[in-house]
Amino acid sequence: MDHMSPLERILRAVALALVVLFFMFPIFWIVLMSLQTNETILRSPPSMAFVPTFKNYAAIIAGRLDSNVASMSIQFMGNLMNSVILSVGSVALALVLGVPAAYAFARHKFKGSEDIAFTLLSFRFAPPLLVLLPLTLYFQSLGLANTYVGLIWVYQLICLPLILWIVRGYFEDISPDIEHAYRIAGHGWFATFRKIALPLAGPGIAAAGLLAFIFAWNNFVFALVLASADKQPVTVGALAFVTASGIQYGQIAAAIVMSIAPTLLLALWAQKYLVEGLSLGAVKG
């Protein structure tokens, strides 16, 4: 049963290649498109042969969208900056609030703790549109509409439950004995949290932070309703490419490449960190 014939091995390699191709092809295609002009993209029949151009990227970075009819200005770089601010800000806030809360939920079972934890999770179940209308009204009267603070606050609906539940699981996986041992050695509870629980749950916290970042980055509807042009992230900003004079495929592709690059790089970097440390074994059986 642990032996494989050469045929099986070849079939397995082919199957794996097909799967990779299936998932990677759209990204590959987008990258190709971003290096072409709208004309070469739309020619018929389509062809793989073209002269690569960085005009699309230049246009997006310069903020001027030139089509054959007219030229208009866009704020894609501003959108990108907004995305970074909103995602980083909301993940940071969610970590600051969520990690200690997750620790509390994992270690201290108090009356109603399960109910509170579940209520927090249930925020993820509610359709965003359900809360958006009342939120808009509140935000307007509170002066939070169209502010980073307000958006980061709303983004907690996405980030906080995610981080809370994932990190809680990691804390629960740490043997309480390890923490008891540190307390008995003479360290206070906060030192134990900082020196034992946090480092041991590190990979889990990183994974949760990464996921929350991706969710926050990809969010569309909160920002669409609650933010006006100068605070909009890339997801909303991409709408600008659908112009009266047509859809600028080349620029859209370049914009997509630029907007997925941060999350992709982050994921690649974190992957190394996530795997390492997950297999530390001090507690037997």
Partner: peptide, 20 residues
Amino acid sequence: VLPEHRGIGMAFQNFALFPH
């Protein structure tokens, strides 16, 4: 008295070493 102030030494069955 909190555990850290009881002045106790303890060895655990599962060793409970700090893995990091």
